[in-house]
């Protein structure tokens, strides 16, 4: 995979609704007994990746180094978000490629609700 060719690319927007069932399943996985009556957990948006066709992810595995979530306001149960992923940069450092990418969720007014910036490592071929 030539990741450099995807630098600057952005996926098509995908509409994702955060259901109570989804949040409860997520809570179960993280060992929390809390039910989805209040807030959506802050790291939950990473599971949106499975709904988005990210071309530079096809059959690839990465080492996750850093993750940053930033919220303009909390996500509500039942809220529908338009989500995209952008590949911000691809740099070679020693024997690794460092990919910086960003998942963004916008509300129906097209205002950003959250961003999730990831730094991923891949052994250079």
């Amino acid at each position: 995979m030539n990741f450099k060719q995807w630098e600057g690319a952005k996926t098509l927007p995908v509409s994702i609704t955060v259901t109570e069932e989804l949040v409860n399943t997520y809570y179960e996985a993280s060992g929390s007994s809390k039910k989805a009556s209040q807030q959506v957990p802050p790291a939950l948006p990473m599971i949106f990746y499975q709904s988005i066709n990210v071309p530079w992810f096809q059959e690839q595995s990465f080492t996750h180094k850093d993750q940053v979530f930033h919220y303009e306001h909390p996500i509500s149960i039942g809220e529908t978000l338009q989500c995209t992923v952008s590949l911000i940069s691809v740099e070679k450092r020693r024997r690794f490629l460092v990919l910086n990418q960003e998942l963004i969720g916008k509300n129906k007014h097209k205002d950003i609700v959250f961003s999730a910036k990831s730094t991923l490592l891949k052994e250079a071929e």
Partner: peptide, 8 residues
């Protein structure tokens, strides 16, 4: 509510 959350 959580405004930012980062991890290395």
């Amino acid at each position: 509510w959580v405004k930012t959350y980062d991890m290395k």
